[in-house]
Amino acid sequence: MSDHATDPATEAFLTHRNLLFTVAYEMLGSAADSEDVLQETWLRWSRVGLAQVSDERAYLVRITTRQALNRLRTMKRRKESYVGSWLPEPLVTAPDVAENVELAESMSIALMLVLETLSPTERVVFVLREVFDICYDEIAAALGKTPTAVRQIAHRARRHVDARRPRASVSASQTRAALESFQRALRTGDPQGLLDVLAPEVVLIGDGGGIKQAVPQPITGSDKVTRFMLGGIRKHQVAFTTEPTMVNGSPALIFRIDGEIDGIMAVRLEDTRITGLYFVRNPEKLTRVESETPLSLR
């Protein structure tokens, strides 16, 4: 595409690229698959006569939506054979993403896991309507459905998500404070420090993708999670370090062993205590954590 930088089609695509990537990622939870969707979107867009397009942004979102829905159905079958728990691919984001409460909440690992429980069509409709505020008529055109049917799907998806999403939004500063306490307890090997910041019902989910060792099943309960975390750290006492970062619009931790990235841990907070720990160790999902990924709702 760089050879045609002055081409109007290319300029339009590049203008909306961050939005299109964000749309695809919110639907798929995979940066690699989202990039593939954008490539397919570009190929189809480059064959469109711009004279027939009245709204370039809407047209591009429509193409991206169709490609993402196709990919989502393929991924659903792929996940059935995934080794261990599947977590969304974490994206390191700029601090200003956290300031956009709507975007940060929609991208949180916790909410994206809730979206995994929707059907592909429900997820697409929910993302387009609730996250990007796209009208029912435009969603209907993208999916080849009637606006009435889309409204029904949106209502069903919203009800499903609302029943499972965190009960109250938590600020980035609250999450950062909880993570600092968690990080300090890990560094000092303080079990009581972990128990103080973990909710009794906390759940730890690990994703190694069958490439790196991870918990095969979620670990539930602050006592069990504390024992697991401290036991794992003792194996790497000298070489183990953590550092703060921003992942999917929220504070998170990078875990390193011998200076090399070993994993990314995101959290879910309710009130002031951690109720969810999401530890991605699959190296195929850590390829983008050395640089920020630009995102956009518009």
Rank of each mutant, 00 (worst) to 15 (best):
Q237I: 13
F21G: 01
L204V: 07
R159F: 12
I274L: 08
A12R: 00
T41I: 06
A214G: 09
E122M: 08
L128E: 08
L143C: 02
A32W: 09
E11N: 13
D33S: 11
L179E: 05
A163M: 12
I261A: 03
D162G: 14
R165H: 07
V127T: 04
V37I: 00
F21L: 12
S250T: 13
W42Y: 09
K79A: 10
P294W: 06
P8A: 01
E290V: 09
Q174N: 13
E292D: 12
G249L: 08
V101R: 14
E99N: 07
F126E: 02
I63S: 01
A98K: 04
H16F: 08
F240D: 05
G209Y: 03
A154D: 13
S171T: 14
E102A: 12
A163C: 10
R268Y: 02
N100D: 12
K235R: 13
S30W: 00
D7A: 07
E243T: 11
R123I: 02
L204Y: 12
A157P: 02
K235H: 11
A239Q: 13
L113N: 12
G84I: 01
S169E: 09
S108L: 04
D207S: 07
E99P: 01
V289Y: 08
D3E: 15
E35P: 05
S250R: 15
P244W: 01
R187D: 15
S106Q: 11
D3S: 15
M107L: 15
N248C: 08
I205K: 13
V247S: 06
P251Q: 05
T226G: 04
R298N: 14
F182L: 03
N248K: 06
A157V: 04
L72W: 01
F255M: 14
T148Y: 07
